[in-house]
Design a protein around this nucleic acid. Structure first.
Length: 649
RNA sequence: GCCGGUCUAGCUCAGCUGGUAGAGCGCCUGAUUUGUAAUCAGGAUGUCGGGGGUUCGAGUCCCUCGACCGGCACCA
């Protein structure tokens, strides 16, 4: 074996070094300033420590602060280690577990009898800054399994022992030191602790988390932190959080009098007039879209005997999450057990099964704005986003296997158009395959997965694979959209189901006269009206486009002499189909403008003596300074045009 | 469901080591007729989340139940 290795740099230049040369050596050889700026490297594309010896000819790239993604990854990862070191220095009884990089930052899970509090953060952060100031070198060694197990036996770190035992045979066990503090880690890491910016991280919260993500395991304490390349990025992130908090749909829901939730009905929405207006606009819109998309609409019962849920398989799998109704039937020998429907699918099959269906009836697209109840775990509820009673824009497409492809494309078209109309330009697709616990044979799953994958590939190859995350009866596509401040929301879903038609004995007569099973495609676009309303509220921060806005215009009087005119203006607005109201209170116009602006009313039409005289209105639009005086008819026409739903323009 | 936290007027919040509740906004009443983000004055806010306990005395301490918040787990 040669005593030298040839290093090829990104610009194509090659250099020869003795075997065992490190990335740090190469950086230093290129220039002292690069040596200083170097954070890590890529060896043949593999992200690696600068201190790792290079044993063969390689492509080498030095990673510096200019490489955004890599630099952040390193900063955050080292931050997690530095935090763990700080915690163990302050509380030596805390056991370490894992501390990965996450979006915007990092966390580290500890096992410690005493709870951490946010009051502890200042002390931890202070110690972290001290560790950073020390510029302690980061060192790494590959150890044998026995050696590492022995080490963690001595240091009494049981979780590290578990982690080592889970590392597959043959994979290196990499030990890291940040100064004197040691951790088991895949790496890579920075050259020394001083490369973490001391003013660009912040500890955010402490929360419980199960060891290895399994609820049967011990609960650990997780400390979350965020970290960036510099102070400004941190500041910008914290500002973004403040902005997000301002548009929280729970806060806006109260302020705009959209809805409320209360203790007597956890997870069930009391829609107020404004919120219900928004809901109905959305529902009307979806109804039009579905009608245009070739769907028929149905309505099925809320309370259904358990036998149907047993047939469908839901009783067995989801019984604890179903609301069971109890009725005091007089003289009943045996009480019937009913459940509030947790989903609509079995009910739709009942409609399908009435009468014999022909292949000529397929595809049959059956839609329902179905109200479903699911007893969601108490800790999972969140405003409108996760509720126990929700209304889906649900539909089931009964079709032949040959029709799956066409229906998939057709659905994605509709979904894209709807999202666009509702203010979301793009969406991501996730393809989820068979889960461990599932119904149906492997042959059926093979067929379902293949059919769905072929269908999606006809439309786009731009999707993410999510193995094991499918529904229990079939593989699915999930559709995620990104809101105005970059957050992702899962809304639509499209699921291929070969199982339920079998279980509930759905069939059709084929062209050759034989009876066949249809495929059922389960699908929603919005997901639920509750959740989607929440997303809309947050995406628009309460400043809805006119067509969606619950309140569209307020006609505010400046003097009481204009009262009669204000009524006439509102009448014209109503006649044009707009949602309008008067504000004739004995208050200054400044007061009214402020109040309706904070209430996110999109248009304030002020009327005083001049407007009465001239037959005009003074229009002030939400978010704009100042106002425009325009003839009444012109103002009404412009608003009516703007308030037309996008599908009717 | 699990870990931690919170719950005081419609809303946002103050109430120290236990001594029987307060502010601002909103609301009500009156005055003010006002030109584009808060007119002035007066008034009423309440089982301090529910229940139990300790105490002469509990918003405050303890127990318990509930809801909510931040996560985790779950999400047909």
């Amino acid at each position: 074996m040669s005593e030298h290795v040839t290093i090829t740099l990104p610009d194509g230049a090659t250099r020869d070094y003795p075997r065992g040369v490190t990335g740090a050596d190469v950086a230093a050889d290129i220039s002292p300033s690069l040596a200083k700026a170097a954070l890590a490297c890529r060896v043949d594309g593999v992200f690696s420590d600068l201190s790792r010896p290079i044993e063969a000819d390689t492509q080498l790239a030095i990673v510096t602060g200019k490489d955004d993604a890599e630099a952040l990854e390193l900063i955050r990862h080292d931050c997690a280690h530095i935090m763990a070191r700080a915690v163990q220095e302050i509380w030596p009884d805390a056991k370490v577990t894992i501390g990965p990089v996450i979006e915007h930052g990092f966390y580290y899970d500890f096992d410690r009898a005493e709870p951490f509090t946010e009051e502890d953060f200042a002390a931890i952060e202070k110690r972290m800054r001290e560790i950073i100031a020390k510029r302690d070198p980061v060192r790494t060694e590959v150890w044998s399994r026995e050696e590492a197990l022995h080490f963690y036996g001595n240091t009494n770190e049981p979780y590290k022992i578990e982690l080592i035992e889970a590392i597959p045979e043959g994979e290196p066990i990499r030990m890291y030191w940040h100064g004197h503090w040691q951790d088991l880690c895949r790496g890579p890491h920075l050259q020394h602790t001083g490369q973490v910016p001391a003013d660009a991280f912040k500890l955010m919260s402490v929360a419980g988390a199960y060891w290895r993500g399994d609820s049967r395991n011990q609960m650990l304490q997780r400390i979350y932190g965020v970290a960036f390349k510099n102070k400004n990025d941190l500041k910008a992130y914290l500002t973004m959080l403040e902005e997000a908090a301002k548009r929280d749909h729970r806060k806006l829901g109260r302020e705009m009098e959209l809805f409320h939730l209360q203790e007597e009905a956890p997870g069930m929405v009391f829609w107020h007039p404004n919120g219900w207006q928004l809901y109905r606009v959305l529902e009307d819109y979806m109804r039009r879209q579905q009608r245009a998309g070739g769907y028929v609409e149905v309505k099925t019962p809320q309370v259904v005997d358990r036998t149907l849920w047993e047939e469908s398989g839901h009783w067995e799998k989801y019984r604890e999450h179903m609301y069971i109704t109890e009725i005091d039937e007089e003289h009943a020998n045996e009480k019937r057990v009913n459940a509030l429907k947790p989903m609509n699918c079995p009910c739709h099959v009942q409609i399908y099964n009435r009468g014999l269906k022909s292949y000529r009836d397929l595809p049959l697209r059956m839609a329902e704005f179905g109200s479903c109840h699911r007893y969601e775990p108490s800790g999972s509820m969140h405003g409108l986003m996760r509720v126990r009673n929700f209304n889906q824009d649900d539909a089931h497409i009964f079709c032949t296997e040959d029709q799956i492809e066409g229906e998939t494309a057709r659905f994605i078209d509709l979904l894209g158009a709807v999202y666009k109309d509702l203010g979301f330009e793009s969406f991501d697709i996730k393809f989820s395959t068979r889960p461990e616990v599932r119904a149906g044979s492997d042959e059926v799953w093979d067929k379902a997965e293949a059919a769905l994958e072929a269908a999606i590939r006809k439309v786009t190859n731009n999707f993410e694979l999510d193995p094991g995350e499918g529904a229990f009866y079939g593989p699915k596509l999930d559709f995620k959209l990104t809101d105005a401040i970059g957050r992702e929301w899962q809304c639509g879903t499209f699921q291929a189901d070969f199982v339920l038609p079998e279980r509930l004995d759905a069939e059709y007569v084929a062209a050759d006269g034989s009876k066949r099973r249809p495929v059922m495609l389960h699908r929603t676009i919005l997901g639920s009206f509750e959740r989607f309303s929440g997303i809309l509220i947050e995406n628009y921060a309460g400043r809805f486009p006119l067509w969606l806005s619950p309140r569209q215009a307020v006609v505010a009087t400046i003097v009481s002499d204009a009262d009669a005119y204000a009524d006439a203006v509102v009448e014209k607005l109503h006649a044009a189909g707009l949602r309008a109201e008067t504000d004739k209170r004995n208050e200054k116009i400044n007061y009214k403008v402020r109040e309706h602006s904070t209430a996110h009313v999109p248009a304030i039409l002020a009327v005083g003596r001049q407007e009465v005289e001239a037959g005009t209105v003074s229009v002030r639009r939400l978010g704009e300074q100042g106002q425009k005086v325009v003839p009444l008819d012109e103002a009404v026409a412009a608003l009516a045009e703007e308030a037309t739903p996008p599908d009717l323009r």
